[in-house]
Design a binder for these strands. Structure first.
Lengths: 241, 241
DNA sequence: GCCTAGGTCCCGTCC
DNA sequence: GGACGGGGCCTAGGC
């Protein structure tokens, strides 16, 4: 951290505003805890009555309002949003605006329990595995996991209905469309596969059979019925842990 | 706030652990800022090298790790997770576990810039409008918005493929399936509508026509083509702002 | 508990 | 810029 971090415990409104303004101009991350009301207007509209919350403002313009429960912020503003901090009715007010889509978030504090700022230095990125992309790589490495003799021909093959995860051919030279899911698959995955199979059938001669196979750890009952109705297949595979 | 909030600026590991342990037993919300590494193993697996981050632990068991960018936490733990705070290699380590699904998150701090706790009191809930449910209510109030003479018969009508947003009849007594979207609709919305129309057609006599209409502010080009291919309709409607 | 679908979904990627 | 689909999606509502 290049600038020294600062904290204030139960600051006056004026002191809190000073801290936030300094942090905003220095592109620091700000956390505010206190009792506030929140109004949002943009893609939707919301109001939130008084309560104690944690408010976070990031240097990239993101704003988050967290209650005491849940993973999701109760209100937020996307990256790229502006932020203005001012005094109104003897309380601190944060006003954040975003363009495209047009969104406005206003947070009115009654009291501020604490305020803190710091200058984050975070050069490292998350390395994640167990994704759909890992499952794809496994299949490309060992195509027989799908069925003996399966031969991948392309990934992300374009059709009029979108891109096929893996396109290939079976031992009889028939076109095969694979739709991959990293977790248990539901009806939407079947519909997706169905769209690609339909599109590919349309694009080729109508007589040529196009097979569709859903590849996932498992499928729900309803998805299984839909697969059967559409004459589509299923292969159980999980991304390696 | 019943208990007094506490803050520590650049605390020793021992002091930070004391603060966190007190907060955990008092079901308080904790925020920690500092340089840390993070390892996750559960539905997927991830590692995150050293960097300055904001860590939040909520009384409901939620844990959030935020970097300086983006709306999403880089790592997290769902509500209902346990949390253990201990000293390891002269640094603070937070270990959170969750069951069903089995997930483990370990955060190793090198340094702690600040730590704070407070006891949130938040009785109010978010009032949100502009949702799909609002769009549904508009249509039930003024069915002619869909087309002259449209008569809603049921919401959430069950079919073998899932529940129909609004089921009704047109002036000719034909069954009509409405699929609603609060925002611009894509291919998935068309597939969803298609599933319900297919299921309802199957459940009735094969000769009876079932109409399907997508109701949304707008549709993408590809979704529009898919609608045409399937003989489905579109009506432009937005949830009132 | 699982299933299903909505969400101010966010987010990357490709056009 | 829009579009499309993945995500450790999360979350609410049914069954």
């Amino acid at each position: 951290m290049t600038d020294s971090p600062r904290t204030l415990l139960q600051p006056t409104a004026a002191a809190a505003i000073g801290l936030v303004d300094d942090a905003l101009s220095a592109d620091q991350l700000v956390t505010l805890v206190g009792r506030c009301r929140v109004v949002y207007e943009g893609r939707a509209t919301s109001t939130l009555g008084p309560g104690d919350r944690l408010v976070v403002r990031k240097p990239d313009g993101t704003m988050l309002v967290h209650t005491d429960e849940g993973h999701q912020p109760v209100n937020w503003q996307p990256p790229g949003s502006s932020c203005d901090c001012r005094l109104a009715d003897s309380g601190v007010v944060l006003e954040s605006k975003h363009e495209n889509p047009s969104e406005e978030l206003i947070i009115r504090f009654e009291t501020i329990t604490h305020a803190a700022t710091f200058d984050p230095n975070d050069p490292n990125e998350l390395a994640l595995s167990g994704t759909e992309s890992d499952l794809r790589d496994q299949i490309l490495e060992s195509p027989s996991l799908v069925e003996p003799g399966f031969e991948p021909r392309a990934t992300e093959r374009k059709t009029s209905a979108g891109a096929i995860d893996i396109y290939g051919e079976d031992t009889d030279g028939r076109a095969v469309v694979l739709e991959l899911k990293r977790r248990r698959a539901g009806p939407d995955a079947v519909s997706q596969l169905n769209r690609y199979v339909d599109a590919l059938t349309r694009e080729r001669h109508a007589d040529a059979t196009v097979r569709g196979i859903l590849v996932a750890p498992s499928v729900t009952d309803r998805a299984h019925r839909l697969l059967a109705e559409r004459g589509l297949g299923f292969v159980s595979l999980s991304p390696t842990e």
